[in-house]
Computed example of a mutant assay.
Amino acid sequence: MNKLEREFAWTGQSHWGLQRAALPPLAPELMGALLDNITARVAVVGRDHCFIYANREALAFFGRPAEQVFGQHLSTVMGEASYAGYLPWAERLFSGESLRWQGWVEYPTRGRRFLQETMVPFAPDGKEVQAIVVFGRDHTDLKLREEEPPSRWASCRPARRSRQPSSTMRWRRSSPPTARAASSSSTLRPRRCLAGTAPTSWAVRSAR
């Protein structure tokens, strides 16, 4: 996929609100903490194409504080070009279809970014869709690394360490010297063994 293409996948009539969640409702403070600490952008857009909510990741991506996003039109926050790209999807989304897409997008304040987004309609009790919940991830850095030539990464690999013979002497294992072997007529000397092990035995050499 080049930088001008996007991939789309409509999932048909698949929206939230048809069934009540089996989990008990969470306190607003806890829900806010959960949404603000997940590693994905979460935003909610109303039928008037204005932001109802955006979590911390989304606000950081937009580069705006909450008061400049909540209640603001998509074109104001994201730019006219991004809003124009959203409009063709809006009718199907507010009709109850879900959308997953990925591709390159040009933002006025962020430049060209590679995004993956899932848009899910929210229709309480299965009635009219009231909002669109958007989940997004920014994979720009990953895509740029994938497009780099392999030779660049090969030059960054650490050089392989050459194997040099060790100067440490190894010692042959045997039973410890006996009292009789360590007589005045003999001297003890370490035996030469394979490199790397501690001296664990001794050889007896006659002094004669």
Rank of each mutant, 00 (worst) to 15 (best):
E5H: 14
S186Q: 11
L34V: 15
L30N: 10
Q19K: 15
K127R: 14
T140H: 05
L93S: 01
E147H: 13
G71Q: 12
S174C: 08
R56M: 03
L142R: 12
L34K: 00
S98D: 09
L30M: 14
R47E: 04
V69T: 03
S14Y: 09
Q72I: 02
S175D: 03
A22T: 15
K127Y: 08
Q13H: 05
N2I: 06
A182R: 14
S174V: 09
A33I: 08
R47K: 08
R163Y: 07
R180C: 03
P28D: 13
V120G: 06
W153S: 13
V133N: 01
F122P: 01
I52Q: 09
P150V: 09
S75D: 15
P158K: 12
P121E: 10
L30A: 15
F70N: 06
M78I: 09
V77E: 12
G12H: 03
P124K: 02
S167L: 13
G79R: 11
S184M: 04
T197G: 12
Q13C: 00
L26W: 10
A27V: 00
S162I: 08
T187M: 08
K127D: 03
L99D: 03
R189A: 07
D141F: 10
V45G: 02
D141S: 13
R145K: 15
N55K: 02
T39R: 08
M31P: 04
F135M: 15
R180W: 02
Q13M: 11
V133Y: 06
I132M: 14
E29P: 02
G17S: 05
R161M: 10
R152V: 11
P25N: 09
Q13E: 14
C156F: 05
M31V: 01
L93T: 05
T118E: 14
R208S: 07
Q72A: 15
A181F: 05
L26N: 02
E80W: 03
G71I: 09
G126L: 01
E117G: 00
A159K: 13
R6G: 04
I52R: 10
S174K: 06
Q19M: 10
R92A: 11
L30G: 02
G85C: 07
D36H: 13
K127Q: 14
R208K: 06
V77C: 09
W16H: 05
E67F: 04
F51Y: 15
W101F: 14
N37Y: 01
S184K: 05
A81L: 09
S162E: 09
E91R: 12
A27E: 15
M1P: 05
S185H: 02
E57W: 10
T168M: 13
I52E: 12
A84C: 07
G96R: 08
L34W: 13
F135N: 03
